[in-house]
Amino acid sequence: MRTVKAYAATKAKGEFEPFEFELGDIEPDEVDISVESCGICHSDLSMLDDEWGMAQYPLVPGHEVIGTVSAIGDHVTHLKVGDRVGLGWHAGYCMVCDQCMGGDHNLCASAQPTIAARHGGFADTVRAKAPSVVKIPDGLDPAEAGPLLCGGIAVFNPLVQFDVSPTANVAVIGIGGLGHLGLKFANAWGCHVTAFTSPSKQEEALAMGAHDTVNSRDPDAIKNASGRFDLVLSTVNVQMDWNAILATLKPRGRLQMPGAVNEPLGINVLPHMMFNQLSVGSSPVGAPVVIRRMLDFAARHNVTPVNEHFPMSKVNEAFEHLRSGKARYRIVLDRD
């Protein structure tokens, strides 16, 4: 038995307090990770507030985990004790469904979220099924890499899934925790990148990889971008005039929404969708093989999140900083 020291909330919107729990014997297909750092994702805040109705308390969030392997089960062959690894949104998959067998583990109906019905990475140790644990490649700073494991893969996965050309025109809506990584990845992919953002963030967007900007609060500016983009990545969780956004797409263009908008979109089929054969979709993070590819790509092209660091013992201050909207652009908790 291993005693884990963690930080947990005991109720929705509650504060985090020190919390201990016991891990049983490790299963043959499991890995224990000694946590070095863990990013805070907006999904952690949504779980803390039980916005999705799936939180269980005491809740130990944290699904952007960086650490070293401290124990492995007897059947684990691709990892060894001491390897530096990462763990993202999923801590396990069924490994036998059509989706898993086809390489789309992130679409597995039985996938196990790292922070739902199990304890996550705001702790000194986190346990996961071995297929969901990926090595951190050389050349990628592990102290900064955590947010790639959820925020990064959320915006990288569409580039792979939809075979986006390096000559494509890509727009990113919302330059925050997800959006700034969307700019960086699309730029490194070779695309011409446009940031839809407020005037106050336009200079930052250009510095992070955008080639030009559109004022997302100006309907005329959006209208002037008509027919420009092959792909629009929306990373916001608020309503916009989605029909106006669809009008910025080229024929056969796609509006992809890694940002979670909870309200109906109010999209009209006519005229833009039907006459230009447009698509609207969303996607959940990525399969382990795509996460590995993303980490290798990030190491090769020096794609790193813009992070603010807090000691893990200051987790309540870090969440208040996130809740206030002041984070620039991701928050990482360093184990202390």
Rank of each mutant, 00 (worst) to 15 (best):
T10R: 14
P18E: 06
D29K: 14
M47R: 06
D50L: 10
H63Q: 13
E64S: 06
I66H: 03
S70T: 13
S70D: 09
V85T: 08
G86E: 02
C97I: 04
C108D: 04
H119E: 14
G120A: 09
A123Y: 03
V126K: 12
A130L: 02
K135G: 01
K135R: 15
P147Q: 01
L149S: 09
V155W: 00
Q161A: 15
F162M: 12
D163Y: 14
S165P: 06
P166F: 13
N169I: 05
I175L: 04
H180E: 03
F185W: 10
G190Y: 06
V193S: 10
T197P: 05
S198W: 10
S200Y: 13
Q202E: 13
H211N: 13
D212W: 00
S216E: 01
R217S: 07
D220F: 07
K223L: 14
D230I: 05
S234L: 02
M257T: 11
P258D: 13
P258K: 02
A260R: 03
N262F: 03
H272I: 00
F275C: 02
Q277C: 05
S282D: 04
V289I: 04
I291S: 08
R293G: 08
M294P: 09
N302G: 14
T304A: 12
V306E: 08
F310G: 05
V315I: 15
N316A: 00
A327W: 01
I331L: 13
